[in-house]
Amino acid sequence: MASQEANQLTGDRDAALVERTRRGDSSAFDELMERYEGKVYRLALGMMKNRDDALDAVQDAFLSVFRKIDTFKGESAFSTWLYRIALNSVYMKLRSKSRHDKTIPLDDEEAFDPVTGHARAAIRDWSERADDAVLRQELSGVIREAVAALPEEYRAIFTLRDVEELSNQEVAEILGLTVAATKTRLHRARMFLRNRLSRHLQGIPR
């Protein structure tokens, strides 16, 4: 409930800033940027390989927002519109043409005993081990590689949902997907990342 109220306040503030930007108040556009540049940058960085490429996409996104602000009808939240523009900038930079075609399987077959169909007794709990300070640095690299290995749409969904903590509904609106399709892809992305980390951690001798 508290977060719904916070979302409402954010939406109201954004709408006021959009209106002032339309009337030519550049300080309002500056404030919109301040509110969102960090989030849009993280999305771009999650999608791309390096900071400079991410910055290019963020620059294009905000320039588009400024130029198209008169076309924003307020049918969705400003943030939804902005994230959509940002993702388009990212996709343009990545020159991706078939982002909707790529899927990943659930990737859980090796977790089950082929005879009984039950989860294997060999599944280990490495969650505490992952707190090891020495391993942390290494894991960060493994995580970035694993996220980069996700198909683009899954990467976007995972970043918006689990890093930016948007709701499934918001992510679905940004990506133009149903909530059900968003949730399916999110689950597959989470399973894929869990299994990548698991393989890495189980391959390191204690």
Binding site: W126, A130, D162, R190, L197
Partner: peptide, 9 residues
């Protein structure tokens, strides 16, 4: 480990 993965990511 599923929950830990989300936190680590």
């Amino acid at each position: 480990t599923f929950q830990k993965t989300r936190a680590l990511c």
